[in-house]
Design a protein around this nucleic acid. Structure first.
Length: 565
RNA sequence: CGGGGUGUGGCCCAGCGGUAGGGCGCCUGCUUUGGGAGCAGGAAGUCGCCGGUUCGAUCCCGGCCACCCCGACCA
């Protein structure tokens, strides 16, 4: 392709709406064009990259025996009513009506339709296992799109679904998909780690996420410095200290005027914050509930939500707390028998904690779980943080930010059971199919790659996903000796199958170099009078910035070697 | 949905109660050519939308919309 004919042009100024590096660069380099909030069109350069990513995904999925198909994007909403996910997706589900007034959704994912198809095509254990996948546009009406392609409403996803006869079959399939994913990310040149994850709206058993480490990422992961444990902060567990020294003492009220926070309380009472009991009020599916946890820890809302099987939780307004007859700042579960209480297990392994007295300006000393209050659920609902101890090996955990590029779920029978996808085993017994589900965000993968690889001049595209491999720049192209030489080199490269973008514009050297740096193709070639005098072409690697003059006759081979074409 | 911000040629922005300007980009010509060149000429804007105040509104007031950022959700 010639730059003079390429659709899309580069900008000099950073786009005002962009915050993330990848977003700025993609707009600046003419990769994408925003249509609406969280909705983008891909211009030719981005589209070439995306197609390369898709093809890598296809090759690796096919390699593990998965079969590509294509499911419909529009689906009757009844399908989601049946599986119960109209509720789960809530406002993220974009619903519309056809001419008969029948509700349709633009698919946010495809468990339901595919399970229905499988239902009709699988009836025996002999039909299993199967792994099916597609690369499709999805729509989720996100409350807040952001960061260019990092978080959008309309997005292309590779989604795969597996169907097995039993748990161990699922286990094997799960592992093979993980292996495929690792190859996909590595071929794309990304630094990605796999972490334990919460399964969220998909439901089901175990789940892992693939996180591209990047400071701009929206997810926080905890990684053990020693044993390899890694988990999303939503899911991460850690070793809690126990405070069981001494024996339980009797409750005693103390006057604590205007002391409303844990820190104030610890200060005032002259104790460590882990000797306090923190009560945090939530609205759990519209009902007031209190989560209690030791004062040095914080509530993990995802764990809390899972602990009570809620579909929606949020912090309660202080007015909502007061309306229930409780005093924010001085509230505790003590004596609150008709309140929903969810406790972190830290309160069970600690004694004599200072808690609210449920009386203005008073707290109580020596509150103890079981003796003074109990909970509907007591489990781990705490948030892991930097520096906490690993629950596997007791080493320190540290945090990193990252972008979620893939997510795999062991669904089990959640969808097969509710949608009736059954098979008969050898003994004529009917069972629901054991399912798994596996996603990769294609556009987000490109964005993450740019987040990870860029400098102040622009993108540094990884070889495998760069829209072209080589940027061929001809300086002073209006001079006949330059243009004929550059044209010749251009056609030689093309003939050898090298994907080359030929900058044949009559622009100043500065403009051409800057555009080359911005788009960041792996290899830059410069044909110029200066180089021509030495019968050479300058070859530069965008990644290393190393450049050298290569004899004209050897350039094509040299380049082919560089890009392993 | 709460909080904050911004809407002015393709892009980045300035401006002001008297009917719109700069830089970049674009077009033409000349000059220039290894890191976003120079000179001259030119095209291009319902000043987000609706209403109000006013002799007159891009500017002031009200409402709405869009987009961005910060929080609750996800590939």
């Amino acid at each position: 392709m010639r730059v003079s004919r390429l659709f899309g042009k580069t900008l000099r100024d950073d786009p005002s709406e962009a915050e993330f590096v990848s977003h700025k660069l993609m707009v600046k380099a003419g990769f994408i064009s925003q249509v609406s909030s969280g909705i983008y069109s891909y211009l030719p350069l981005a589209w070439r990259s995306l197609r390369k990513i898709e093809n890598i995904i296809r090759e690796e999925m096919d390699r593990i025996g998965a079969q590509e198909l294509r499911l419909s994007a529009l689906q009757p909403r009844e399908l989601y009513d049946e599986s119960g996910r109209t509720e789960v997706f809530g406002n993220d589900l974009l619903t519309l009506e056809d001419r008969r007034g029948r509700p349709l959704v633009i698919a946010p994912t495809h468990e339901e339709v595919l399970t229905n198809i499988v239902k009709a095509n699988v009836s025996s254990y002999k039909d299993l296992p199967k792994v099916l996948y597609q690369i499709q546009t999805k729509f989720r009406d996100e409350p807040r799109p952001r960061g260019g392609l990092i978080r959008v409403r309309e997005f292309d996803m590779k989604d795969a679904y597996s169907f097995d006869v039993d748990e161990s079959g699922l286990e094997d399939t799960y592992r093979s998909v993980i292996a495929a994913y690792e190859r996909i990310y590595s071929r794309c040149g990304l630094e990605v780690i796999m972490v334990e994850a919460d399964s969220g709206a998909m439901g089901g058993g175990g789940s892992h996420e693939f996180i591209a480490l990047a400071d701009s990422g929206e997810d926080t992961v905890l990684i053990c410095s020693d044993c390899g444990y890694a988990a999303n902060a939503e899911k991460a567990i850690f070793l809690k200290s126990e405070l069981t020294n001494g024996s339980q003492k009797p409750l005693k009220e103390i006057h604590t005027p205007n002391i409303k926070t844990i820190n104030q309380l610890a200060n005032y009472a002259g104790i460590e914050i882990q000797q306090t009991l923190k009560s945090v009020f939530y609205m759990v599916d519209g009902e007031l509930a209190v989560a209690v946890i030791r004062g040095d820890l914080d509530i993990n809302e995802v764990k809390l939500k899972n602990a009570v099987n809620a579909s929606d939780i949020r912090l309660a307004e202080s007015s909502e707390v007061r309306n229930a007859g409780l005093l924010p700042g001085f509230a505790s579960p003590i004596g609150q028998d008709d309140l929903r209480i969810i406790a972190d297990d830290s309160v069970e392994s600690s004694i004599n904690l200072v808690a609210g007295a449920n009386r203005e300006d008073y707290h109580v000393l020596n509150s103890n779980y079981d003796r003074d209050f109990s909970a509907e659920v007591i489990t781990d609902i705490s948030l892991a943080k930097d520096g906490y101890s690993c629950s596997v090996c007791e080493s320190k955990l540290y945090t990193q930010r990252g972008i979620e590029l893939g997510h795999v779920f062991k669904l089990g029978t959640k969808y097969s059971a509710s949608l009736g996808a059954m098979f008969l085993d050898e003994r004529d017994q009917q069972h629901p199919i054991i399912m798994g589900s596996y996603g990769i965000g294609v556009g987000r993968l490109l964005a993450a790659s740019i987040e990870q690889k860029n400098d102040d001049k622009g993108m540094i595209m990884s070889d495998a996903i760069a829209p072209y491999s080589v940027w061929l720049s001809a300086l002073n192209i209006e001079k006949e000796e330059i243009s004929s030489e550059a044209e010749l080199l251009y056609s030689e490269l093309k003939e050898e199958g090298v994907e080359v973008l030929f900058d044949d514009r009559e622009e100043s050297a500065g403009v051409k170099f800057n555009d080359a740096d911005l788009i960041g193709l792996p290899v830059r070639l410069v044909v110029s009078l200066r180089n021509l005098k030495q019968c050479a072409v300058e070859v530069m690697s965008r990644g290393t910035s190393e450049s050298k003059l290569v004899h004209r006759d050897d350039v094509v081979d040299f380049v082919k070697e560089m890009i392993k074409c």
